[in-house]
Design a protein around this nucleic acid. Structure first.
Ligand code: NAD
Ligand code: NAD
Lengths: 221, 221
DNA sequence: AAGACTTTGTGAAGGCATGCACAAAATCGC
DNA sequence: GCGATTTTGTGCATGCCTTCACAAAGTCTT
């Protein structure tokens, strides 16, 4: 029961629920109903309950869910009890912003390496961290690490190959284009122009309809 | 037939196909088969053909698809014949990177306004553009515009309310959290910490399995 | 202690998306 | 001009996700 197979769609929403729970935890709220939490998270209550049921039975009928217990259970399921190490590769405009982003640390990640190949960038300090070249990165990385690729598109594949070679099995890719990786490696991509193009399609077409959200759901009230 | 209803999943992949076609167009390739294009785009050929069939019959059996015609048809369907105006609101770390990003211009978008509320930022120049405050933005915006929100999370809702008030119906939101908007407004959100958390889940769990991609598909060869 | 009330957990149904397999349609070679 | 070959377009089956609806299980009131 604890180890049922969790559907992909549910996994993608667990982070949303966790973030929705956070203010409740800090506010000291003890219990929350699926209805309330669903509103905060921007989903339907029935779907929320079904999602949570995959984690086991952590609610109490007639009452709701214990906020702290639920948060800690989702945290455990996502594997966020201990922070993950992250390496950002490609310290250009986007890499700078990512390095300075505080949202990673508060949500279970520790940016541990800033990597670039440009000798003019290597050795400089960004957001309090020293930028290293790939060799230094390769020499110091030991633990499990998630690689964030923010190099130009033309360099993305070679960077992916190199980090896979180092044993990395999780990649977040900002460079538009398809990465070829071994089947045991997972890649998630963020393509901002694609997002805008999807918006453009609906804006152009749906003079009437218009709703649609990425994977969560846009709120109502 | 031209105006069949295009499924959301297909719409989300059209930008991928368009990007896959681009190098072929510039290389002067005249025809491409669904097999070849699917490989470039990182999808299955059967799915690609089904997706394209929603646009109408633009392939020739036994031959393939006319590269230029297909690209122009997808461009038309996405509403990208003419560039869309984009306003970036919140010129911090992320806003800077977005303003400097050349990938928007090459894929159908023109960043026309950089907006911030901080008097120390308003009036400065970023990536060759002058930063304005919201009042100046509100006074000069006339045409259809897509709003990109890159303010801190706490300001995101009020900014969304303000741009909706101006008539904006498409929002790309980088601030984590749920936005409440009228039903005729579409919101897409990009939440990087969520992406990392999904990667963390699979990395922690799937010692064996691991595949999964955002909405596209990670490549094979 | 029992009945009223609340809210979870889930079975069942419907809708979408994906993948398969093949007929239809076009070209090419002779 | 015809048969072999290639590749599209799509009907069908399968599986996944979402939504509905309600029984089960708990609390609260009296
Ligand atoms: N800037 C944005 O807002 C934005 C938005 C969406 C997507 N992207 C994508 O993100 C990527 C980075 O964008 P950017 O604007 O920061 O580009 P950029 O040119 O400013 O920075 C790229 C950096 O990568 C480094 N680099 C190049 N090859 C490398 C290698 N092999 N190993 C390590 N480092 C290497 C360069 O030295 C440079 O510092 C691009 O693929 C871009 O398409 C950027
Ligand atoms: N930096 C990143 O890489 C990154 C990554 C993912 C998500 N985000 C999110 O993107 C948003 C921006 O991040 P950032 O690092 O650039 O933050 P930042 O603090 O560097 O910049 C925020 C900017 O928004 C401006 N601002 C605040 N309120 C405003 C308002 N009402 N109207 C207009 N402008 C306003 C501020 O003056 C500031 O310039 C945040 O919500 C953050 O969570 C950032």
């Amino acid at each position: 029961m604890t180890r049922r197979d969790i559907p992909d769609a549910t996994v993608a929403r667990l982070p949303v629920y966790l973030r929705a729970l956070h203010p409740l935890v800090t506010a000291g709220v003890e219990v929350v109903s699926s209805e309330e939490l669903a509103t905060i998270a921007g989903v339907r209550s029935a779907g929320l309950r079904k999602d949570l049921s995959y984690l086991g039975s952590y609610g109490v009928r007639g009452v709701g869910y214990d906020v702290e217990r639920l948060a800690s259970e989702i945290t455990r399921q996502l594997g966020l009890q201990h922070p993950w190490s992250v390496a950002i590769i490609g310290m250009g405009n986007l890499g700078h912003a990512l390095a300075a982003y505080s949202g990673f640390a508060t949500r279970g990640f520790r940016v541990q390496w800033l990597v670039d190949r440009d000798p003019a960038v290597v050795g400089t300090e960004i957001a309090g961290m020293r930028v290293v070249d790939f060799e230094q990165f390769a020499a110091t990385v030991t633990e499990q690490v998630i690689a964030v690729i923010s190099t130009p598109p033309v360099a993305a594949q070679e960077v992916a190959d190199a980090v896979v070679e180092l044993g990395v099995r999780s990649i977040l890719n900002f460079a538009p284009g398809v990465l070829s990786v071994p089947s045991h490696t997972q890649v998630r991509k963020v393509d901002l122009a694609t997002e805008l193009q999807i918006l453009a399609f609906h804006e152009q077409r749906g003079k009437d309809d218009a709703r649609i959200a990425t994977d969560g759901i846009e709120a109502s009230g």
